[in-house]
Each structure stands twice: as C-alpha cells, then as structure tokens.
C-alpha cells in the first residue's frame, strides 16, 4: 500500500508538471489553432533562468523560501518575455499563411532555442539546487516528499486562479470570444493581437513555474529537458482534449499516473511505451480526447 501511495503521489507530481505545460499548449491551440512546438523550450528556459538567478541570489545571501520565490519570479518574467517575443517573431507574421507554415516555424523555433541554450550554457546536465525547503510536518510521512506537496499545491492554486481569470475577467471573456469567433471579437473592439499575446504570456508563466519546481525536485537540468517534457505535455493536452483547459489538467494527471505506475510495477524502460500507448488507445476510441468535443470539420 505504501509503495502504491508513493507511486500515486509521484504520478500526481509528474502529472501536475505535465498539466502546467499542457495548459500552454491547449490555450494557444484554442486561440490560434497552432501547436506551439517551442512551448517546451520556454519551460526549459524557465528552469535555466531560475538556476542562474538562484546561483546569483545565493551569493547575495538569499536563502530558503525567499530564494525560491525570487528565482521563480525572475524565471517567470524571463519565460514570459520569451513566449511573448516568440509569438511576435515566429507566429504573428504567419497569421494569414496556411496552417502548416506556423507549425514549421514552431518546430524551427524549438530547435533554435534548444541550440541557443546548448551554446550559451552547456550540453551537460547541470545540478539544480534544492530550492524547496522541507516541511517539518511531513517529516514522519514516507510516501510523499515536501517538494511533491508543494508542486501539487502550486498547480492546484494556479489552475484555479486561471479558471477564475478566464471565467470572470474582461480579458478572460475576450479570450473565450476570440477562441470562438475571431472576426466577431474584432468587430466588438477586441484587440486580437493583445489577447494572443496575453495567452502566450500566461502559458509561458505556467511553464516556467513547472520548470522551476520540477527541476528543484529532480535536481538536474540540461538543454534537452524542454523537448521531452514538451512532447509529454503535448500528449497530455491531446489526451485530455486539445483546446480544453480541464482536459489539459486531467490529461496531465492521467499521463503522470500511467508513467508512474508503469515505472513502478513494470519497468522504467517501459515508461514511454505506456505513455504513448495510452495516447494511441485514447485516440482510437475517443479521437477528440477525454474531454474534447468532437467537431465535424466542414470541408
């Protein structure tokens, strides 16, 4: 039972990170029908920024929670700036092009950003400092680590805040309106460019939060982590139903558990087999994803 719980919370942690990244995929897809393949790189850049910021800040004497919060904040600002710029440079000029062009541009940006970090930093794994403090009340608990609890809570709080934002604020309503009918939103005075920028900033912010937390949990990063996490989170988004926010969270959790249990009960070698096997399985029986609405596309 204890082993099961350990795997359960491990899966939930993984799932939370996948969910945080998947939200970025699903929101961008919802608004401009683009799979932003460079999204994983934003997560990776968040992790690297936090590493650099934490190193610098700890020299300045920061430590404990303030170090995590400050480094995390800097990572968020950087990642959001990258996400914002990415859209302006790589996608906005292609807005009127065929759907394939921005997709290729996205893959190009993904490769570019990976190599940019590879050159600017290193190809080796770098140790990531454990920024998350241990909770004293978890000392007796063996099935869950402090960092896991923090990742879970942060994910829950940020997705709840995002849901409220989308449901109740003026910008949130505009985002939903743009997702449903861009031209009509324009005709009601919505600055569509700004809505798209905000979407990228929100997605990048969540990806950065995920990047900082999971790196601190795992303890090492390299330039390639964004690609792997990005592909997995994209899988989660598709699994849950791309374009659906609750779908992204659910997809992330399902994927996290699948991997965790496959690793724990079968073998860690089969982790990806189970993850993508599940994707194929879902796509056969529910092509629109678990929570996705099947839309008959008019040809």
């Amino acid at each position: 039972m204890e082993y099961f719980l350990e795997l359960f919370f491990g899966g939930l942690t993984r799932g939370s990170i996948y969910a945080l990244i998947a939200i970025g995929y699903t929101m961008v897809y919802g608004i401009i029908q683009l799979i932003n393949f460079a999204h994983g790189e934003i997560y990776m850049i968040g992790a690297f920024t936090a590493l650099i910021a934490a190193s610098a800040l700890s020299i300045e004497g920061f430590g404990g929670w303030s170090l995590l919060v400050l480094a995390g904040f800097i990572a968020i600002v950087y990642s959001a700036a990258y996400g914002f710029t990415l859209e302006k440079i790589a996608y906005k000029p292609l807005r009127k092009a065929s759907r394939l062009s921005p997709l290729i541009s996205a893959i190009g940006m993904s490769i570019f950003l990976q190599n940019y970090v590879l050159l600017a930093q290193t190809s080796d794994f770098l140790p990531f400092p454990p920024l998350i403090e241990e909770f004293s009340f978890l000392e007796q608990v063996t099935v869950m680590r402090s960092s896991e609890l923090l990742i879970l809570s942060v994910t829950a709080v940020s997705t709840a805040l995002l849901t409220l934002f989308i449901k109740f604020t003026r910008m949130g309503k505009a985002m939903r309106a743009v997702a449903q009918d861009k031209t009509m939103a324009m005709l009601l005075g919505v600055n569509v460019d700004r809505v798209i920028s905000v979407t990228f900033i929100i997605g990048s912010t969540l990806a950065a939060i995920g990047g900082v937390l999971i790196s601190s949990h795992i303890g090492q990063i390299n330039f390639y982590i964004g690609f792997i996490a990005g592909i997995k989170a994209f899988t989660a988004a598709v699994l849950g139903g791309i374009g659906s926010l609750p779908g992204a969270v659910l997809g992330g959790m399902v994927l996290g558990w699948t991997e965790s249990f496959a690793t724990g009960y079968v073998s860690s070698d089969y982790e990806d087999v189970f993850a993508f096997g599940l994707l194929v399985f879902i796509l056969i029986f529910r092509p629109a994803g678990i929570l996705g609405k099947s839309t008959a596309e008019k040809i």
């Binding site: 003026r170 309503k173 505009a174 939903r176 309106a177 449903q180 031209t183 009601l188 919505v190």
Partner: peptide, 17 residues
C-alpha cells in the same frame, strides 16, 4: 455570429467590452 459557448449575459458583456 453569436459566441456559442458564452452565455447570453456574456455575449452582451462582450458588446460592452
């Protein structure tokens, strides 16, 4: 061109965006 997934109220809110 009603926003199909917004409520009537929200559609009107969008008019006053």
């Amino acid at each position: 061109r009603i926003f199909p997934l917004l409520t009537v109220q929200e559609n009107l809110d969008m008019g006053a965006y």
